[in-house]
């Protein structure tokens, strides 16, 4: 059963068609990847899924519920969380604060009782902190909890961004180039990390990635996008040998 479904998505900016007839069906519990040359529309697809853009036509379904046109915060509340291509942490805040902020969507009591530190709000805050520290501990970031996010090394910032997405209790994780800027050994670690969190948190992972080694190794299914259109999909082997994919990446006459 598909957890995420893109049904005939078209996304147009002025005269530019960024996505055309895009159909994607991500299966629950799998790791699937969206690849394609630069400017193929991968991040645009993520922005459509997460509600940053409303598609020109077509619909997005999450667990068979239509989520087209919902605002990003509502979509996150339903269980889809994302990371960003150019890391968008809350830079001047601490690691712990970054995680706590991602817990805010679960807060039940209102701002007055939180300001006045009512017992039930205190409990809520306490639970939130315990949960956040547990998550940080699990991901090996606990010792950094009081550091300012922007002071972390690059790799840790990527990890923190994933941790932050996990803190929303999402069931579907969208990772936008998680391995960008990493060296091969870091990429290998990341690969294990993604596997581990998928199993531990029972996630479905849909990611955009340029590191082909990583993609080929961990993806159950791969979608290839070129100029806004899906040109291939399937397992790593199927995609690797698809002539259209080779053409898109290597180019026939023009540079991709």
């Amino acid at each position: 059963m598909g957890i995420l479904k893109l049904d005939n998505i078209k996304m147009q900016f002025g005269g530019v068609v960024a996505l055309n007839n895009l159909n994607i069906d991500v299966e629950k519990g799998k790791i699937e990847a969206l690849i394609g040359p630069n400017g193929a529309g991968k991040t645009t697809a993520f922005n459509v899924i997460t509600g940053v853009y409303t598609p020109t036509s077509g619909d997005v379904y999450y667990n068979d519920k239509k989520i087209t046109g919902l605002t990003p915060d509502k979509i996150t509340k339903m269980g889809i969380a994302r990371t960003f291509q150019n890391i968008r942490l809350f830079k001047n805040l601490t690691v712990l604060d970054n995680i706590l902020i991602a817990n805010h969507l679960h807060v039940k009591s209102n701002f007055l009782s939180h300001t006045l530190r009512m017992p039930w709000s205190r409990q809520e805050e306490k639970n939130m902190r315990e949960k956040s520290e547990m998550l940080l501990d699990r991901l090996g970031l606990l010792s950094l909890k009081n550091e300012i996010a922007s002071s972390l090394p690059y790799g840790e910032q990527r990890k923190l961004e994933i941790a932050r997405a996990l803190a929303t209790d999402a069931k579907l994780l969208l990772l936008d180039e998680p391995a960008a800027g990493m060296n091969p050994s870091e990429t290998m670690q990341l690969s294990n990390f993604i596997h581990d969190i998928r199993d531990e948190f029972q996630l479905t992972i849909f990611m955009i990635e340029h590191h082909m080694d990583l993609v080929m190794e961990i993806s159950d299914k791969i979608y290839v996008l070129d100029f806004g259109e899906l040109i291939a999909q399937g397992t790593a082997d199927e995609v690797k040998n698809d002539p259209r994919v080779i053409e898109a990446y290597l180019g026939v006459e023009e540079d991709a």
Binding site: P72, A81, R82, R88, D97, A102, H104, L105
Partner: peptide, 17 residues
């Protein structure tokens, strides 16, 4: 903290629900 998140990065804050 939610206010500060909005100050730091509106798009990320919204993506965090």
């Amino acid at each position: 903290r939610a206010f500060k998140a909005i100050r730091e990065d509106e798009i990320a804050a919204e993506a965090m629900g």
